[in-house]
Amino acid sequence: MNVKALLPVLLLLAAPVLGQGFAGLGTEAQGFARPAPGTVLEFPADHGAHPAFRIEWWYLTANLVGPDGTDYGVQWTLFRSALAPETRSGWSSPQIWMGHAAVTTPTRHFVAERLARGGIGQAGVTAAPFAARIDDWRMAGPDLSALRLSASGPDFTYDLSLDTARPLVLNGTAGYSVKSAEGQASYYYSQPFYTVRGRLDLPQGPVPVTGRAWLDREWSSQPLAETQEGWDWISLHFDNGAKLMGFRLRQQGGETYGSGTWVGADGTVRTFGDGEMTMTPLRETRVAGRDIPVKWRVRLPAHGVDVTIEAVNDSAWMDTLFPYWEGPVRITGSHGGRGYLEMTGYD
């Protein structure tokens, strides 16, 4: 057993991880806080970390365009994983941090990953002024309305400015997002309205880019049911200004559990539950030894959505400790636009 195989164990408790949902997210969460319906999220405090919860992320995806019209995708994610529901200073802190960054072009997919121990100042999040960082990667600003985003990998760096004046979107019921029929849930809010300007540095040279970005904030202690194996998740920017976040959690035996949020062009937010949105795989591709659906038909009849989404780059495989597929998509059909697709648990 090498360290690579070992670290999941180390990182995410002693449980036999891989058998129980993606990245151990379906395991028991003894001693950790549990999301409760009716909790009112408070900002800016809730932009910061919640160490009493087992898992948390600051998840940003951006659909960008270069001067020549080329599509680019950018991902910046900071995960927090708690071994115990407490904070301690120094090396004995049970808070472990993990960062994923990626740049996707139609032909290439650049990935970098960072790991850090909490308690020694190598990684962490402060709510106000807002700063999330691991090593040299940063997502920081005075608050969430204006952010500087940077990351670097062996073959890329990026530096982006994100701006929005729009309010946050609370998913589920006032930010309480149910993930299974058994009641697994997370706190989940988003900021889907960023406009982006900045620069990518890729092996072929610097690329000035503009575009749109979407920030997801989610924390929980057991976001998946034990029987759930993975999820397919989309965040779509429609050309008419509307936004759609939707996911379906795949259960053993082929059942799924879905949910999502529709944000109209005018800013009206409507969340929907299981069964309202359908996602149908249209085309699979072979990536990293797995068959991954990279083209989907997505229907949300309540909002007249019947679109086909297709990966900008089929090979947007995140070859990280917990591998998954995450990449930009093009939208055609009833609506046009760009978005992000994330798929986990395909083994």
Binding site: V3, K4, L10, A84, I96, R117
Partner: peptide, 27 residues
Amino acid sequence: VDPVTAPPDAVPRTVTGGGSLLPFITP
């Protein structure tokens, strides 16, 4: 060693034993 940041194989493979990270780092 720091098992979290050590490059793969830089740290003894044996620091596994099925144990978890928590008791390893907690005094």
